[in-house]
């Protein structure tokens, strides 16, 4: 079986499993009938309006985070980069926690505030990293991302310390990330925001290969390095901000999935980006299925599951690769 067929199968299996399992114990036959719109209307609603959009959203977010991670690792030429590195998670967290602490209601208040916070952090980091008028210095980008993220995290800590307990719990759960608010609307909105940046990043596959050689070799091999870096940074930021808005901060996928693909398949981005999208999507869908069923009716934060399952797998991969 080719590697693409293997990844595709993995993705389909993860999606199928996520639709079949859940706290409401439905049989596979009922679930399949409900998928087709038949059966009692509660079952149909659970399957078609809760499980399917939730699985799709997790897949799209997981895939997007993995692609962003791969792109940012090449952009800043640092294997430790992840989608949240550039201050984005701090800004998003600050926006979300602020709205939660102020008790502002409405399904879209928190995602909107998170997106605004993320974009504000991105703009600030970008401004700090542009030196000598036009050059985006990726080393400063890295540092600026870390300090802006730390500053926002400090403010988040202050707000949470001063918040009443019921706000504290929802703020904490938001910060850990998850898909409890998934809906077709969320899938649609995320899809609308994700499609352009994703297409743009995939289109830059070979320039990303060049950039990971270093800026000077990239330039002499024909890459327009400065505009390229700006496009990559903006596209990855918009994509991550959209992911944060619909699902909070889900760690690990963006950091580790690109490395797993590099170890298994090599580092050329024409293969790496689509493969990372499929694996990241499958991983997050599977992790979300585990998160909401393992301790049902309670659910774990999905980021906890991705880390608990992913770290050992990744450790094995790294060891295999090192030897």
């Amino acid at each position: 079986m080719s590697r693409w067929a293997a990844l595709g199968t993995l993705a389909v299996l993860a999606l199928a499993a996520a639709v079949l399992v859940g706290p409401a114990e439905l049989g596979p036959g009922d679930t399949l009938r409900a998928l087709g719109g038949r059966g009692d209307h509660v079952t149909v609603a659970i399957v078609r309006d809760l499980r399917v959009p939730r699985a799709l959203l997790a897949f799209l977010v997981g895939g997007s985070l993995a692609v962003c991670g791969a792109v940012l690792q090449a952009l800043v030429r640092n294997p430790l980069a992840d989608p949240y590195l550039l201050g984005l998670s701090g800004g998003a967290g600050l926006g979300a926690v602020l709205v939660i602490a102020l008790g502002i209601g409405g399904a879209w208040a928190v995602p909107a505030a998170a997106a605004v916070g993320a974009i504000a952090a991105v703009v600030l980091v970008y401004r700090l990293a542009v030196v000598a008028g036009a050059v985006l210095d990726t080393r400063i980008l890295l540092l600026a991302g870390v300090v802006v993220g730390s500053f926002a995290a400090a403010l988040v800590g202050a707000i949470m310390a001063l918040s009443p307990a019921e706000h504290l719990r929802s703020a904490l759960l938001w910060l850990l990330g998850g898909f409890d608010a998934a809906s077709w609307q969320a899938v649609g909105i995320f899809g609308a925001y994700a499609v352009v940046p994703l297409a743009l990043l995939v289109r830059e596959s070979r320039p990303l290969d060049l950039l990971s050689l270093g800026e000077e070799p990239a330039r002499f091999l024909g890459a327009d390095v400065e505009p390229l870096k700006r496009r990559l940074y903006v596209a990855a930021s918009v994509l991550t901000a959209a992911a944060v808005a619909v699902s909070g901060i889900i760690g690990f996928v963006g950091l580790v999935v690109p490395h797993a693909i590099r170890i298994l398949w090599g580092s050329t981005h024409r293969a790496l980006l689509p493969a990372a999208f499929l694996l990241g999507g499958a991983l997050l869908v599977a992790a979300d299925a585990v998160a909401r069923t393992a301790f049902a009716p309670l659910s774990l934060p999905v980021g906890v599951v991705t880390a608990v399952v992913g770290v050992p797998v990744f450790a094995v991969l790294v060891r295999r690769w090192a030897s």
């Binding site: 690792q73 995939v202 320039p207 290969d209 070799p217 091999l221 024909g222 590099r262 090599g266 580092s267």
Partner: peptide
């Protein structure tokens, strides 16, 4: 151009890195 220093961030095979010399001819995708 062959420059003085170059450190690839991620592992590449020799054939892949030489093939990057075709970028000016084939473009991004």
């Amino acid at each position: 151009v062959v420059v003085q220093r170059e450190e690839p961030t991620f592992p590449l095979r020799v054939r892949e890195t030489v093939a990057l010399g075709r970028y000016p001819h084939v473009g991004a995708m």
